[in-house]
């Protein structure tokens, strides 16, 4: 039992880092432009398909496709921003929810139309095998995914605190009007935040694919997981997102150990509703 718990907790911590990276893109978009993107999970799902196809056609390992998928997704983010988001930023919230739900339904079913319902997994991948640490077996793929996630988060934090562009993004997030008065092009910051958020999804998707399969339905789960983390983190910055991801990963691990793995989503979403009730500003929020 203890060994099982230990094993599950290690898995939970590794998954938690990945969850945090997936949510980071959403947190960035939400933080900067206060936009409520219901299609986030579908973005993740489409990115996972991109990883699958690029890996298949170029015959390169899935983890390497992150170098291709991230820039593609940055552009994809800009296009979606121009087509949809730009028109609904700052309008009334129901329009934002409805438009992004439309996007979510559209993307999910386009994926279904294009790639049918069967799950797809990478054909081959260099990140194989596992390391054994005492009683715990750590798969290399998950370990790499977690390390890359933390690395990407540190890089984003450095970008937000040490570059002019990053500072401008944070200024826009703190006070849009003041930032605008100081000569920051707010719309360009929005586009940048949306593109960056999507590029992060691209990186995350490549490494998730090294140990998971994708099907057109998987978007909902990724979307809701990201929302849980964003709500938990509040507007608490990158470290808040990472901590929330870790908490969620460990909650999942405990649930799997002590109850039924099939119910793990039920526990996670109940936790989500509970946090919405009692801590709507998040556990690590500064506002």
């Amino acid at each position: 039992m203890l060994e099982l718990l230990l094993q599950n907790l290690v898995n939970g911590i590794l998954m938690g880092c990945v969850y945090a990276l997936v949510a980071l893109g959403l947190a960035l978009q939400f933080g900067v432009m206060d936009i409520i993107n219901f299609a986030h999970g579908e973005f993740v799902m489409i990115a996972m398909y991109l990883v699958f196809w690029i890996s298949l056609y170029l015959a390169i390992p899935g983890s390497l496709t992150s170098l291709i998928v991230a820039p593609i997704y940055f552009v994809f983010g800009l296009v979606i921003y121009k087509l949809v988001i730009d028109r609904i930023v700052g309008t009334y919230p129901l329009a934002q929810i409805a438009a992004t739900i439309g996007l979510m339904v559209l993307l999910r079913n386009l994926a279904l139309a294009a790639w049918r319902a069967q799950p797809r997994g990478l054909q081959y991948e260099v990140l194989r095998g596992s390391v054994t640490l005492g009683p715990v077996v750590v798969p290399i793929s998950r370990l790499t995914a977690a390390l890359v996630s933390v690395g990407t988060m540190l890089a984003l934090r450095w970008f937000l605190t040490h570059t002019r562009l990053g500072l401008a993004l944070r200024a826009t997030s703190d006070d849009m009007q003041a930032a605008s008065l100081l000569g920051i092009n707010v719309r360009r910051m929005f586009a940048l935040a949306f593109g960056l958020g999507c590029a992060i999804i691209g990186i995350a998707a490549a490494f998730i694919m090294t140990f998971q399969q994708v099907n057109p339905e998987s978007g909902l789960t990724w979307g809701l997981i990201s929302w849980i983390i964003v709500v938990m983190a509040g507007l608490g910055g990158v470290s808040g997102v990472l901590l929330s991801g870790l908490i969620l990963g460990m909650v999942e691990a405990l649930e799997i150990t002590f109850w039924d793995p099939r119910a793990s989503l039920a526990v996670m979403y109940s936790l989500f509703i509970l946090i919405l009730w009692v801590k709507p500003r998040g556990l690590f929020g500064r506002r």
Binding site: A99, G102, L106, L110, A113, A117
Partner: peptide, 14 residues
């Protein structure tokens, strides 16, 4: 095109 009818829902809503 499986799901074409659902794509339609997404398009019309957006």
């Amino acid at each position: 095109i499986p799901g074409i009818h659902l794509i339609f829902y997404g398009v019309i809503l957006t």
